[in-house]
Design a protein around this nucleic acid. Structure first.
Length: 487
DNA sequence: GAGTTTGAAACT
DNA sequence: CAGTTTCAAACTC
């Protein structure tokens, strides 16, 4: 069947678990996934990622003065360490040093470290530069060592975390692993609760007492995640809905971006109504217990409701709250939507191939082109999408009017949106995709961007954007409804 | 840049 | 396992 054949590339493109390289190509083929060299899925993936992260990255780039030209030659990934140690036979314990001789330092570590704002996560992108003095960089105090990396361009003293001290290093690693086999495994992991903290949580949890978990002393805060059940912190303010956290975010663009990232992480789990978990420890002053909105309000579309519900909880001890998209967006909807995207792609492929044939036979195809694009921008396409998703089916007529808008502009004109919502809308990036609507150039072709697929990809991405806009609309409307009910 | 605070890691 | 010490990062002045 022609349609299924055309849909195959999109199926492959949407399979983000498969990275496009020579080794995975064979795997993909074995799975029946079609690989098209002239249109690697990485292009689509990177565009989607860029769409979601552009705001974050732009702001980070402007706020960070860290020089980007430092590239350590080779870094050992954290997960590599246990493996390395497993090969060791002896177990020398690294002795504690009294007071090593201090070499002359040439650079101010503070000015540099201040700029090093990369969140500590499982996949560090930028090499930390430590300032260790007494640990020889062979203890977990050393960030480089703890990350499984060799020291490089650091300001450490008497450093043994180097290739030339490999024996010492391995001995120390072995000793540490003997104490704690998980010492080198990433501390940040996917949360079993999902919505609790935006999808990830600190494996061990923090133990903060004075920082309110709102300073970088706190490992959770530093990793840009919310505190979880596992934390033993006191007077924690690092939870969704925390006024202090909110105030902090509003004051600092960097923290705003962190919040956006947290909210985006939470969107996947929170929007489909994953039940929140609760942290309950009687020995601790837990603000989350008095603010039951915290965990439920993880959706980026629910930021305003979160604020509202937060204030409600100050007045009532048992506030009721549900995320705006709870009960609206179900897992099945996401599946349906993916199916829809495949269909859109297939239809586009079909139309485009017909168009190509017509061009070849000298027929003017302007009308066809218009019909293809418009059918996916509104009208039938929208109805199809709306039907398949069943979104906001319980909403009043106003919603239908809003849904009929294809670009979501009316939503934005209605009132200012939160940075979190704007981050998801990513409309400022529209030009990136819309620019591909211009006739493909020979450059694109020579770069391996088959114009046929560029156009096909554009249509799919536009549908995706349209879907996100509708989702936002649903969230806004539900939010308004909840707000009215609260009044 | 020096000094202080903080919380994880290491040690007892 | 709890308490203490050490350590280096984060923070303040």
């Amino acid at each position: 069947m022609e349609q299924s054949e055309a849909a195959a590339p999109v199926v492959r493109q949407l399979d983000f678990s498969v990275s496009y390289n020579a080794s995975t190509k064979a795997n993909a083929l074995a799975k029946g996934i079609l690989i098209l060299p002239e249109h690697p899925q990485a292009q689509l993936q990177s565009k989607l990622l860029a769409l979601a992260q552009s705001q974050h990255l732009h702001a980070r780039a402007s706020s960070s003065s860290q020089p980007q030209n430092k590239r350590p030659p080779r870094k050992v990934p954290p997960q590599e360490l246990p493996h390395m140690v497993g090969l060791l036979k002896s177990k020398p314990i690294a002795p504690r040093l009294a007071h090593p001789v201090k070499p002359v330092k040439t650079e101010s570590p503070k000015s540099r470290e201040r700029c090093n704002i990369e969140p500590k996560d499982s996949t560090p992108k930028k090499q930390k530069q430590c300032n260790c003095k007494n640990s020889r960089c062979l203890k977990l105090y050393c960030e480089c060592f703890a990350a499984g990396s060799y020291c490089d361009n650091c300001n450490c003293i008497n450093c043994h975390n180097k290739i030339e001290h490999e024996a010492d290093r391995k001995g120390s690693i072995d000793a540490i692993l003997e104490r704690n086999p998980n010492a080198f495994t990433p501390k940040i992991a996917n949360s079993p609760h999902g919505a609790t903290d935006g999808g990830v949580e600190h494996k061990k949890g923090c133990n903060c007492k004075k920082s309110g978990c709102l300073k970088r002393y706190c490992e959770c805060f530093q990793a840009n995640i919310l505190c979880s059940d596992k934390c033993k912190c006191m007077d924690c303010k690092n939870f969704e809905g925390s006024e202090e956290k909110k105030a902090l975010s509003q004051g600092h663009p960097e923290h705003q971006l962190m919040s956006i990232q947290q909210a985006a992480n939470a969107a996947i789990n929170g929007a489909i109504g994953t039940p929140p978990s609760r942290k309950s420890r009687n020995h601790q002053i837990d603000f989350r217990e008095t603010c039951s909105t915290s965990y439920a309000s993880c959706s980026p579309l629910s930021v305003h409701v979160s604020k509202l519900a937060s204030s409600m909880t100050l007045e009532s001890s048992k506030p009721s709250y549900r995320a705006p998209l709870a009960g609206i967006l179900q897992l099945q909807h996401v599946k349906d939507f993916c199916r829809l995207l495949v269909e859109v792609s297939a239809e586009a492929a079909k139309s485009l191939s017909e168009e190509k044939k017509m061009i070849n036979s000298g027929i003017d195809v302007n009308v066809t082109e218009t019909s293809v694009a418009s059918s996916h921008e509104d009208g039938k396409g929208d109805q199809n999408e709306h039907d398949s998703l069943g979104l906001c089916g319980n909403q009043e007529n106003g919603l239908q009017i809003l849904l009929s808008e294809s670009d979501g502009s009316c939503i934005r004109n209605r009132r200012p949106l939160s940075p979190e919502t704007l981050a998801l809308m990513c409309d400022e990036e529209d030009t990136v995709f819309l620019s591909t609507s211009t006739p493909p150039t020979t450059t694109q072709s020579t770069l391996g961007l088959n114009p046929f697929y560029v156009e096909q990809e554009r249509l799919v991405l536009m549908r995706f954007r349209s879907f996100l806009n509708r989702l936002i609309t649903c969230g806004c409307i539900e939010e308004t409804k909840i707000g009215r009910e609260a009044d």
